[in-house]
Amino acid sequence: MDFRFLPDEPSGSIRIPPGQTVLINSSDHSECLKLNVLEGIARVYCPCEETEGMTLAFLQDGDQLRTDCLCSDGVCVEALTNLRLETKAEEATGHGYDSVNEWTLQLLRIRHLGQAEQRLHALLSLLVSRLGKRYGEWCSLPFRLTHERIGELIGSTRVTSTRLMSKLRNGEMLKTAPGEAEIRLSPDLINTSPLSF
């Protein structure tokens, strides 16, 4: 995988196209940096070989990532949509809301549901409630995840994820159009989540 490296010093706006990844290594920075998401949606994941790209969080406009809260190997930030970030120097205070920790907690809650179908249902509900929008009769996510990534998020195989996604498509609970990044989901699916978010 190709990585783009975050500048060592605080900088202005950084644009990242969908599919590109920025590696943030906490040991590369002499001071704590705060990464602000100005626009777009990103996936934050662990670059460690042992965890195989485990997703820690999703970030959107207004969310922050502090470099003093990273593991020794740092984290990767993958642009799921057109992404614009800024970095600023910040004193490490350890106080306040941390969007990465909140996402990690919610993803752990999902992983503890008993069946893969329940976990997928809860994951889609979480993504729509945090990152999606309601348009008419459908809820919309502005990006797609691969079946392999969905499997990683719900603790199943790619094959299981593909089977479950096909079941939702056949039940007219999920729609995708070829060539479009958007996923449309039925509000009934989102409103009947096995977890509340």
Score class of each variant (00 low, 15 high):
Glu148Met: 03
Ser26Met: 09
Gln64Leu: 05
Leu107Pro: 07
Asn82His: 15
Gly136Lys: 06
Leu145His: 06
Asp61Trp: 03
Ile150His: 05
Cys76Gln: 09
Tyr97Leu: 06
Leu83Met: 05
Ala116Lys: 05
Asn25Thr: 14
Val159Phe: 06
Leu70Glu: 05
Leu70Phe: 05
Val100Gln: 10
Glu78Leu: 15
Asn101Glu: 08
Asp68Tyr: 12
Leu113Arg: 04
Val75Asn: 08
Lys88Ala: 14
Arg66Cys: 15
Leu85Glu: 02
Glu39Ile: 05
Gly53Phe: 07
Val75Met: 10
Ser156Ile: 04
Thr67Val: 12
Thr81Glu: 12
Asp63Lys: 11
Ser27His: 09
Arg109Asp: 05
Arg158His: 13
Val75Arg: 12
Ser27Trp: 02
Cys32His: 03
Gly114Leu: 11
Cys71Leu: 10
Gly114Val: 09
Leu59Ser: 00
Glu117Tyr: 02
Leu59Tyr: 08
Gly132Asn: 04
Leu113Tyr: 07
Arg149Glu: 15
Glu102Leu: 12
Leu108Pro: 00
Gln60Trp: 06
Gly155Tyr: 13
Phe58Leu: 13
Leu124Asp: 00
Leu127Asp: 01
Glu86Ser: 15
Glu50Gly: 06
Asp63Pro: 12
Gly132Phe: 14
Asn36Ser: 15
Gly74Leu: 00
Cys69Lys: 13
Arg158Asn: 12
Leu56Arg: 10
Glu102Phe: 15
Leu107Cys: 03
Leu65Lys: 03
Trp103Leu: 03
Glu137Met: 03
Leu56Phe: 11
Ile154Gln: 10
Glu39Met: 09
Gly53Ile: 06
Lys34His: 04
Glu137Asp: 09
Leu124Asn: 01
Cys139Glu: 11
Pro47Ala: 09
Thr93Asn: 07
Gly155Ala: 13
Tyr135Asn: 10
Cys48Ile: 00
Ser156Thr: 15
Ala89Lys: 14
Val75Thr: 08
Ala92Met: 00
His147Val: 00
Leu107Gln: 04
Ile110Cys: 01
Leu123Gln: 09
Ser26Asp: 03
Asp68Ser: 13
Leu126Met: 12
Gln106His: 15
Arg134Tyr: 02
Leu35Asn: 00
Lys34Glu: 14
Gly62Tyr: 09
Gly114Phe: 15
Glu148Asp: 08
Val128Gln: 08
Gly53Asp: 02
Val100Glu: 02
Arg84Glu: 15
Gly74Tyr: 02
Ser156Phe: 10
Pro142Thr: 02
Leu38Tyr: 05
Leu145Glu: 06
Ser27Leu: 07
Asn25Asp: 15
Arg130Ile: 03
Glu90Ile: 13
Gln106Ser: 14
Asp68Val: 00
Ala79Asn: 11
Phe58Gly: 05
Glu91Gly: 07
Val77Pro: 02
Phe143Ser: 05
Tyr135Asp: 08
Ser30Gly: 04
Arg66Val: 06
Gly94Ser: 11
His147Asp: 06
Arg84Met: 13
Val159Met: 10
Leu153Glu: 10
Thr55Glu: 01
